[in-house]
């Protein structure tokens, strides 16, 4: 019995070690792709740079800097639609990065459809301007820390009699983490999934499928917000000028999870 337990422990350790080693190997491979991409970019071999960066994307890496660099390579290779999509993806994870904002603006200036990469702001958006300045992860951290702080404060005012007069104030502050959590949910729902048209021209339909009427057309690089994903691979999109419609998912490139 004792021998079996020891054997199990050793086996578990070996298994964990092998997982750790394979994890390191994967990380190293990803780093190699990143380095190769950068070198190819510097040599002007943009196709190779794209290929290496795309390897990382295919491996499931979600990283704003990666999307940014990929956007650079796309643009240099003349793939403007992909470049816009990559910079929009980078903005999602680097919302305060001036380089991303500058490059996105620059590339958008070269495309035919003059559309903004954001929806018109309502008063709610204006009040919650800070939401756009934080990534989902940062916002989640803020919410978690506020929840933790509120929990500690409530525990203290409920258990320490000398602080009992602060009970109502502490209770009322539940609104703060509540607001942040709501913002987190709203951000996850609304203002994240921006993509760009990949083809030279793409049709936008009144419903999810090509049997529906074509309501308008978009040209390469046109930015659009994905508001819904239909089962048949069609995306419901909204443009900065208020237009809405459905586009085939194979025509609109979006970086990051949908």
């Amino acid at each position: 019995m004792k021998n079996t337990t020891i054997f199990n422990l050793i086996a578990s350790f070996c298994l964990s070690l092998s997982f750790a080693i394979s994890g390191l190997a994967t990380a190293s491979e990803e780093d190699q792709h990143a380095t190769a991409a950068e070198q190819a970019f510097d040599k002007g071999d943009y196709a190779a740079a794209i290929s290496n960066y795309e390897q990382l994307v295919k491996a499931g890496v979600v990283n704003g800097h990666l999307y940014y660099n990929l956007g650079m390579a796309y643009y240099r290779a003349g793939q403007r639609g992909d470049a816009v999509a990559a910079f929009l993806g980078a903005r999602r994870y680097l919302p305060r990065d001036p380089d991303t904002a500058a490059n996105l603006k620059f590339v958008l200036g070269t495309i035919r459809d003059k559309l903004e990469p954001e929806l018109p702001k309502s008063w709610v958006n204006r009040v919650g301007f800070w939401i756009d300045r934080l990534t989902m992860k940062e916002l989640a951290w803020v919410a978690v820390l506020l929840c933790a702080f509120w929990g500690i404060a409530m525990t203290a005012v409920l258990l320490i009699p000398a602080w009992s007069k602060w009970r109502w104030y502490a209770g009322a502050t539940v609104l703060v983490p509540g607001i942040v959590l709501s913002s987190l949910a709203a951000k996850g729902q609304d203002n994240e999934r921006w993509g760009a048209v990949e083809l030279a021209k793409a049709k936008v339909y009144s419903g999810p499928g090509t049997l529906n009427a074509v309501v308008f057309e978009l040209q390469e690089g046109a930015p659009a917000l994905v508001t819904e994903v239909a089962a048949g691979g069609f995306y419901r999109i909204q443009l900065s000028d208020g237009k809405k419609g459905w586009i085939s998912g194979s025509h609109l490139k979006v970086f990051g999870p949908l």
Binding site: A27, E30, D31, A34, Y53, L56, V61, V62, N63, G64, H65, L66, N69, Y93, T135, M136, K137, A140, W141, A143, V144, L145, C147, A148, F149, W150, G151, I152, M154, T155, L158, G256, P257
Partner: peptide
């Protein structure tokens, strides 16, 4: 570091749970 994940991973969720759950539970 281009290969670091910037999404909310399962590990992040576990940390969030630990950080927020204990004070909330004590409250």
């Amino acid at each position: 570091n281009l290969s670091s994940q910037q999404t909310i991973t399962s590990a992040d969720k576990a940390i969030f749970g630990l950080v927020a759950a204990s004070p909330l539970a004590s409250a």
